[in-house]
Write a protein that binds this DNA or RNA. Structure first.
Lengths: 223, 223
DNA sequence: CCAGTTAAGATAGCATTACTATCAAATAAG
DNA sequence: CTTATTTGATAGTAATGCTATCTTAACTGG
């Protein structure tokens, strides 16, 4: 069988975790652990114990836990772009593409068994809670120079191009798109933890509401 | 002289830092240090050395550095609401209030010498870089129960009420307002560090552009 | 003015974290 | 079969995030 494989920026890791058994165990276990413990409480020691390996071995794959998080988030953006391509490639107009795109961005992520070692639902929860931590650091500029945020930037660029196709005169396509991508995560977090900051309620229709909100935000702003 | 004093949620501190000299030194120095070092590199030990005091003394004011950050951000939201009140109270219509409000939210913060111990410009930079860290933690729910995010929530509620006044049928006033408040910070960060995620350029007109973007986002979405 | 409370400084200590380094065992590749 | 590579095992270290205790300084009420 043909396995789908995402080629991520090599600066994100020391040894490619997708290539080895230990590497894949590190990914699966870290997703599960960060999801349950939160990123601050997560350590390489706990991870190593969890997979019956050692701290030293984990350090051979990732420089530190922050890089590991950046790797996971990088994987997430690549995966999201892949899904957006899937649902938009057949659509003729940028309007339809944007709507389908919003649908993917706002949707509850269902388990995608294309990738055995990745629990996409847990990863989605991690992105909701930890995404901002990947770039809100003092090293953001050097990290950026190494291209560690390429996944996010690429996706933002692609969607912004559709916006500009619809309204070439609109001055803030990237600003608008990055706002929408971030808002999709933040509002889910608020619905779960700080409900007075949102109108989304914490139910099954939550993602439908988010989609409605984001779509009207996008469409009304650019037309 | 009558000094303006913000009454913040007492759960934010152990001893009120506004009341004592040491407390005020802790605030001033921590703002300066977090601004230069970043929150991760900032420690109570460095802070204590900086103000020629001891770690133990700092711990008598704040449970830990995370609470101190929450205190600073709480102070910021209270201060922002105070400024918004200042610029909107005389305006008759919610439309005008919202526009003035966006102006305050998007504006470059100029030093406000009403508060001697607070460097508002540095604090603003801290909020841009560290705001999300105040609630993106595993303890967010218990922190929220203690009312630690009251400043943000109150401001969001006030502005949302204006939105609902203009369009009572709009279903997402809080979602829209919290998005705008966060976006104001994130886009400044992007302009400085991840320019391909924004169209704001890193110049003096940056805040004017941000204001234009936010205003059109808000007005077009609710009308 | 003295007694008593409170704030602050001084110092010590401790478990955990975030690494780094070294060496040996297992395994896979030529 | 030998050699390079990967992993495991173990040790160690500086910094972090506290907690505890003791003393001195200051200020407060009677």
């Amino acid at each position: 069988m043909a396995t789908l494989y995402f080629r991520l920026n090599p600066h994100l890791y020391l040894r490619d975790p997708q290539q080895t058994e230990l590497g894949q165990k590190i990914i699966s276990a870290s997703v599960r652990l960060i999801d349950t413990l939160g990123f601050e409480q997560f350590t390489f020691k706990k991870l190593a114990e969890d997979i019956d390996s050692t701290e030293a071995s984990v350090y051979r794959y990732f420089e530190n836990k922050h890089r590991l998080l950046q790797y996971l988030v990088g994987w997430y953006w690549t995966w999201l772009e892949y899904r957006i391509d899937l649902f938009t490639s057949s659509l003729p107009s940028p309007q339809e593409k944007l709507k389908a795109c919003i649908k993917v961005v706002a949707s509850e992520k269902k388990f995608d068994d294309t990738f055995e070692f990745m629990d996409e639902e847990a990863l989605h929860r991690i992105v909701v809670s930890e995404l901002d931590k990947t770039y809100l650091t003092k090293q953001v500029d050097s990290d950026n120079r190494e291209g560690l945020f390429g996944g996010f930037k690429l996706l933002c660029k692609k969607i912004s191009a559709w916006v500009s196709e619809i309204n070439p005169g609109y001055a803030y396509p990237h600003t608008l798109v990055s706002t929408i991508l971030l808002t999709a995560k933040h509002q889910i977090f608020f619905a779960e933890h700080l409900p007075s900051l949102t109108d989304l309620n914490n139910t099954t229709t939550r993602h439908q509401q988010l989609e409605t909100f984001l779509e009207s935000l996008l469409i009304k702003t650019i037309t």
